[in-house]
Every structure is written in structure tokens, then in C-alpha cells.
């Protein structure tokens, strides 16, 4: 899933300083799972913004809606009836994709309430970690199921670098060295020899470096 984290209240507060009435929109997808932008967080943010504005003697009106997903026009459309004339700003608690989908549909001041962090998963309640760098051409079958692109601080494809010590990355003792993990796992699988093959330079044109990426699936396209 996409893991995101709420921006500081102060920051969101400043983003809508001019508004009198705002639409606060949550998303029922990834950001609900990572406790950043679901119905609960929408309620909390809206209440905090109202409270802060009240203390500043400039009351704020909020309308709160949480869509099933903000990255899908089918659901975004459901907002139409809430986006009225008086709405001065839309605060989106989705990942960056959702924010853009709202901005694309409505000629309103749309602001992000979250910082979108990474593609990752839940390690334990309240703990999420990055797993995929969205490189566009997965090589996990060559690295024991551990991604060196995003889990190695230098995206080394023929690691580990000389900074790996005691299983930790040179960048931070709190981070496992991805290449130590790869080594351990390949050894466990009896495939250490695979690591002797030189992995050639990667084709980054498949990643974000190639410009905007699209996926088309013929059979799903409506005639």
C-alpha cells in the first residue's frame, strides 16, 4: 500500500488561512489502513482546524466526507454534490494521487493534508516500512525477494558496499543492510552462487526517469 503521514496541523492550518468553508475529504484506501487519512482522521483534522480558527476568532466551517477511494473517478464523482459555491478550499487526506484527482476535477483550491511517504507494508500495529521503489522492472527473483533498489541506501545491484557492518547500513544503525539480508537469504536458499553473476546497469527508463508512466490493459478498456 501507499503509506502516508499527516502534515503538522500548523501547516494545514496555514494552507487554508483564507478559507471560510472547507471540504475535508478522506480516503478509504491505503491511508485508512495506515491511519493517516480515513474517516477518523478526517473528523480529527476538521475538529482541530475549527478549534484553532475559533481561538483565532475567525470561525471555520467544515464539511467532512470520506470516499471509498480518491484515486478513482467513479468515487471522486460522489463529491460533486458537496463541492458547492461556498466551498473555498478542499483539504484532501489521500495520498498525492488522490489530491491530484480532486484537483483535476474541481476548479477549487485543493491542498494536501498528508505527506505521501512510500510503497510499503505494516510491520506491526503502528509501524510501517518501505518495500518497493516502483522501478518498473522487478528483479526480486534475483535478489532473494529483498529489494536492493529501495532498501539499499545506494540502490546497489551488486552489493554490499564497504560500509555494511554487523548487518547494519552505513547510513543508519537502525536500518538493516539490504545486502546483508540478501546474502543471508540466498545462503539459506543455497543460491549464493547466483550472487556471483554481475547484475548489469539497470534500465531506469522503466522507472520514473523515463517520464510519466502509463499502463494500458486492452481487455479492460471500454469500447
Amino acid at each position: 500500500m501507499i503509506v502516508a503521514e499527516g502534515k503538522p496541523l500548523e501547516e494545514v492550518y496555514a494552507l487554508i488561512a483564507e478559507a471560510k468553508k472547507v471540504l475535508v475529504v478522506g480516503c478509504g484506501g491505503c491511508v485508512t489502513v495506515c491511519l493517516a487519512g480515513g474517516e477518523k482522521e478526517v473528523g480529527l483534522l476538521a475538529a482541530s482546524l475549527r478549534m484553532k480558527r475559533k481561538l483565532a476568532d475567525r470561525p471555520l466551517e467544515t464539511v467532512e466526507v470520506t470516499l471509498t477511494r480518491q484515486c478513482d473517478p467513479e468515487y471522486v464523482e460522489q463529491l460533486d454534490r458537496y463541492v458547492t459555491e461556498e466551498i473555498d478550499a478542499i483539504v484532501s487526506l489521500a495520498c498525492g494521487v488522490g489530491v491530484q484527482f480532486l484537483a483535476e476535477r474541481y476548479p477549487k483550491w485543493v491542498v494536501p493534508a498528508l505527506n505521501t511517504k512510500f510503497a510499503g507494508g505494516t510491520l506491526a500495529p503502528g509501524r510501517w516500512e518501505e518495500r518497493c521503489g516502483l522501478c518498473g522492472e522487478c528483479i526480486l527473483h534475483r535478489t532473494g525477494g529483498i529489494c536492493p533498489i529501495i532498501r539499499c541506501a545506494k540502490s546497489i545491484l551488486n552489493g554490499p558496499c564497504g560500509g555494511s557492518q554487523n548487518g547494519k547500513c552505513e547510513v543508519n544503525k537502525e536500518i538493516d543492510c539490504a545486502w546483508q539480508l540478501i546474502y543471508d537469504r540466498m545462503r539459506l536458499l543455497g543460491r549464493l552462487d547466483d550472487l556471483l553473476t554481475i547484475e548489469p546497469a539497470k534500465d531506469w527508463s522503466k522507472a520514473k526517469d523515463g517520464g510519466l508512466r502509463k499502463v494500458l490493459r486492452e481487455e479492460a478498456i471500454l469500447a
Partner: peptide
């Protein structure tokens, strides 16, 4: 650096 046993193999690479 670690893993020690892999250092020489990486040198070989």
C-alpha cells in the same frame, strides 16, 4: 565490512 565471508567473493566480482 560484513558479511565477511562474502567480501572476497565480491572482490572476485
Amino acid at each position: 565490512a560484513d558479511p565477511f565471508e562474502f567480501r572476497v567473493l565480491r572482490l572476485e566480482k
